[in-house]
Design a protein around this nucleic acid. Sequence first.
DNA 1: ACGCTAGCCAACCAACTGGTTGGTAGTCAA
DNA 2: TTGACTACCAACCAGTTGGTTGGCTAGCGT
Lengths: 198, 198
Amino acid sequence: MSRDPSATKASLLAAARVEFAAHGAAGARVDRIAERAGVSKERIYGYFGSKDKLFDAVLDEVVEEVMEFVGEPGRDIAAYVRRVHDFHRERPDLVRLLVWEGMQGGGSCPNRRSRVEHYVRKNQAMAEALGLETAEEAAPLLFMFMAICSWSVVVPQVARLVLGEGIDTEDGRDRLRKHIGDFAEGAVTHIREQQSRV
Amino acid sequence: MSRDPSATKASLLAAARVEFAAHGAAGARVDRIAERAGVSKERIYGYFGSKDKLFDAVLDEVVEEVMEFVGEPGRDIAAYVRRVHDFHRERPDLVRLLVWEGMQGGGSCPNRRSRVEHYVRKNQAMAEALGLETAEEAAPLLFMFMAICSWSVVVPQVARLVLGEGIDTEDGRDRLRKHIGDFAEGAVTHIREQQSRV
DNA sequence: ACGCTAGCCAACCAACTGGTTGGTAGTCAA
DNA sequence: TTGACTACCAACCAGTTGGTTGGCTAGCGT
């Protein structure tokens, strides 16, 4: 058909992303990926070797994208958190892929080097904004921000139970967004106070 | 073998809990559950009808347990959050089951009634502790507390990347626990201040 | 003692799984 | 033109899946 290897590869990656985000590495079906890509599934093995390696390739790609799209935290940390929240809400793929990796994966963690680097950079930016001395001190904060920004993507059914059906409306989502911002704001002020007290 | 229906049922439920927590409803294997329970898999269909219904039964049971073991939030909310964190760390089953349900489930949400009730009760307790007027106002807070307490169970690989390898040691975990408590403390103070300002 | 029901299992089944293979057909250098 | 190389696919394969079936037997009421 297309006789354009790089286009075929890209098409497979795109299809795989949809499938993996929806079902995880274990739940994904190779046939569905191939069909969505409009390509014989044999191409998956020709280009990527196996289903799992394809998953890793997708993850690489998405992590790369997020580095590009979500900037680094600036002075106004609550604003940054809201930005991250917006990104995850609009494109839940990354969060879902990470969660699948964490829940199904055997702790292999591909592309480790660059991912660590990515988070270190964010931690540094955050430490600077908070007046903390080392990046490590900011890490738990970053981690918890990720948690509150992602949670409603990960357990939407719990969100509906706890926050009410309103969470499915634009209005309800905005309200949660505001709470998330406030929550972050509170935590940051708390830290700043502890900081100045020393 | 055992010829004791309720014992067989219980044995199946226990085995299913392990299997479902590890692999989710879709990833779980009926044969493995039966083998672990030391029972023919046909009994699963005899007692529960299908794999999915067995999953629901397990979820019911676990939710029930959590209601029992984790109390309600008292005056010291940070302490409550730490308690929840400890529970999830020691027994990650509940979190994992909820996440599988959220990621794989089709939004059916079995046992809805009692689960809503459970969260409403917690929201009320929390609203009271914070001096908020309605339970709904406390809901987002409860939701975010769940998030920060569960996150390292859900994406352990990210925890390792962000917080460093130390997270796998008892010491590192305690440090995170402390940060989670502080984080909650900060958010609560923030809310209390907003409250008193009005 | 005896039959009947309920708990149980080994064996089975059709559907589906990730992965492979043999062969076709574009494409490009010589 | 030819020959070789590469992208590609339909058909295939062995192993696994959730779910079913026919029959065995422990234990109870009679």
